[in-house]
């Protein structure tokens, strides 16, 4: 089941990047996609127990998550712009390091959480050791914002709905 999905994803990539629709180029694409799928079909998806419907739901929830994070990126950029351009923002800057434990289990969810933390205003992930995240924060206000756990909850809603209900 999963090799077919990997093949379809690879072939979509081929079509977009090649941009030619004659038989010769499509044939080359099919041959190379089959070879790559045969060699490395076990790399792309880690957890093979999930069904196709669960995967589709997860992907849909992830797509719904993207607009929110994009808005957060815009806010983060306005924050950086304010810090860089005004004198008052520079005086307000109080950097520190914060540590917290996450409730997420899988590696991919942790990866998405780390990237989301990097992209939200004033916080950057420094180090991940197991469940512990070390985060560099710009000011006290942002630290309170981070420790309220809003981002973690959003990511958990996308990838592990069971965890949210349990906590």
């Amino acid at each position: 089941m999963y090799p077919i999905i990997v093949f379809i994803l690879l072939f979509l990539n081929w079509i977009v990047f090649s941009g030619k629709f004659d038989v010769f180029h499509l044939g080359l694409g099919i041959v190379s996609c089959v070879v790559v799928t045969w060699l490395s079909h076990d790399l792309l998806f880690h957890d093979r127990k999930k069904g196709l419907i669960a995967r589709t739901r997860e992907a849909w929830r992830f797509i719904c998550y993207i607009p929110w994070i994009t808005w957060e990126v815009v806010l983060a950029n306005v924050h950086v712009f304010k810090l860089a351009m005004t004198r008052k923002g520079y005086v307000e800057m109080v950097p520190r390091v914060v540590t917290f434990k996450t409730i997420l289990k899988t590696d991919f969810a942790k990866f998405v959480l780390a990237n989301s933390i990097t992209l939200t205003p004033g916080t950057i992930t420094m180090l991940i050791r197991g469940d512990t995240f070390h985060i560099h924060v710009m000011s006290q206000f942002l630290e309170d914002d981070l420790l309220s756990g809003l981002i973690e909850q959003k990511v958990a809603e996308v990838f592990e709905p069971g965890v949210v209900n349990a906590v």
């Binding site: 990126v73 983060a76 950029n77 950097p95 990097t118 992209l119 004033g122 950057i124 560099h136």
Partner: peptide
């Protein structure tokens, strides 16, 4: 580290 804040977000 503070320069990293400027680069990591503004660049994206």
């Amino acid at each position: 580290y503070t320069r990293m804040h400027a680069a990591g977000k503004g660049d994206t």
